[in-house]
């Protein structure tokens, strides 16, 4: 087992809910991320899946140090990154980069591609001396499969998929070790999505990158990830290797999530295990006591309301799961292709 390059320990991020204008008072906390721990190994892809509101994007922001955690920490190579500031933080940013979901709003429409990709070098001049920057930018464009001749074009002259490639090139400019991808392909059409996914895989092989790959699409996550963490209401409910999560899920939420994904094969219509969840995700301001999933869970017992199930390996299972009644169940009949 290779060593963890990034470690997340008991990370908590709460946002205050305030009332009033003049005499503002805090009336509650949105518990966006509420005690998340995991390690990221060098060269691996850790997928983070969950539905909207589960805290996966907040997690990305805290990992990037765009938000300070309420409690807990993120440790990069022995360094607690949430304590860094100034020059030390700037140096760290070279190592951890972000690819955002929306290639339309994450690129400044008034900057040419050359400026957009050259900007990282202005902030970190030590990476590329002034004279070599244009050449570096061309190299980057070529790397992500764009025509280096288009260096003077503006973002609106590119399609969605091409813009996402620009976003990836920008994240790559400083040769980081870790890239946090927050829904990088969900805004793209099917035929373009596959191109971008292949590009991410190819770049990982070429530069030995580690990815934290955040997405809601379970099929995409399966395709790209070595390990997968499933989140629900600010907590990781199950974590394991791709096989463990997709072939032997033990948490009821993971099982329900997997069973709800439509498989593009009409012959599977009637021989699928379908677990239908009722109701909606509860509010993260006042999550249910004990296990947060219990209000929608078909296995819930009294103990689920009283005790928070820990994320740990239980009897009959080979990977950590936060359920008092964790039990293996095959949902997806997997075959190799």
């Amino acid at each position: 087992m290779s060593e963890n390059i990034l470690e997340v320990n008991d990370l908590v991020k709460h946002y205050p809910v305030t009332q009033g204008v003049v005499f503002k008072k805090t009336v509650g906390q949105v518990k966006a991320v509420d005690g998340v721990s995991f390690g990221l190994r060098a060269g691996e892809t850790l997928g983070v899946v969950g539905e909207s509101g589960c805290g996966k994007s907040t997690l990305a922001r805290v990992l990037m140090n765009l938000e300070k955690p309420t409690a807990g920490n993120v440790v990069y190579k022995g360094q607690d990154i949430s304590k860094l500031s100034g020059g030390a933080l700037r140096r760290l940013r070279r190592q951890i980069q972000l690819v955002m979901q929306d290639p339309y709003t994450s690129l400044n429409p008034r900057m040419t591609v050359g400026d957009l990709l050259g900007e990282p070098f202005e902030i970190h001049p030590e990476v590329a001396p002034k004279g070599s920057r244009r050449a570096k930018v061309r190299e980057l464009l070529d790397l992500v499969g764009l025509n280096p001749e288009h260096i003077n074009r503006y973002p609106h002259q590119f399609s969605g998929g091409q813009r996402q490639r620009i976003g990836i090139a920008r994240a790559l400019a400083l040769r980081p070790e870790i890239i946090v991808c927050d829904e990088p392909v969900s805004a793209l059409d099917v035929s373009i999505q596959a191109q971008v996914m292949n590009l991410l895989e190819q770049l990982q092989g070429e530069f030995g990158l580690s990815y934290v790959f955040i997405a809601h699409d379970l099929s995409v996550v399966r395709h790209l990830s070595d390990r997968v963490a499933v989140m629900y209401l600010g907590k990781i409910v199950e974590i394991g290797t791709e096989d463990e999560i997709y072939e032997r899920p033990t948490h009821p939420y993971t099982q329900a999530l997997l069973s709800a994904v439509p498989v593009p094969d009409p012959t599977q219509r009637n021989n699928k295990t379908i677990i239908r969840l009722t109701g909606d995700v509860p509010s993260p301001i006042s999550p249910p006591s004990g296990c947060r999933f219990r209000t929608r869970c078909w296995k819930a017992q009294d103990v689920c309301a009283e005790q928070v199930p820990l994320l740990e390996i239980r009897r009959g299972s080979d990977h950590p799961s936060a359920c008092h009644f964790a039990e293996k169940r095959e949902i997806v009949a997997t075959h190799e292709v």
């Binding site: 596959a194 292949n198 997997t334 292709v337």
Partner: peptide, 16 residues
């Protein structure tokens, strides 16, 4: 070109 939940795969084939 779509990744499938029930498939472990290598590179996705794409439409160029």
């Amino acid at each position: 070109s779509i990744p499938r939940l029930d498939e472990k795969g290598q590179q996705l084939r794409t439409i160029k």
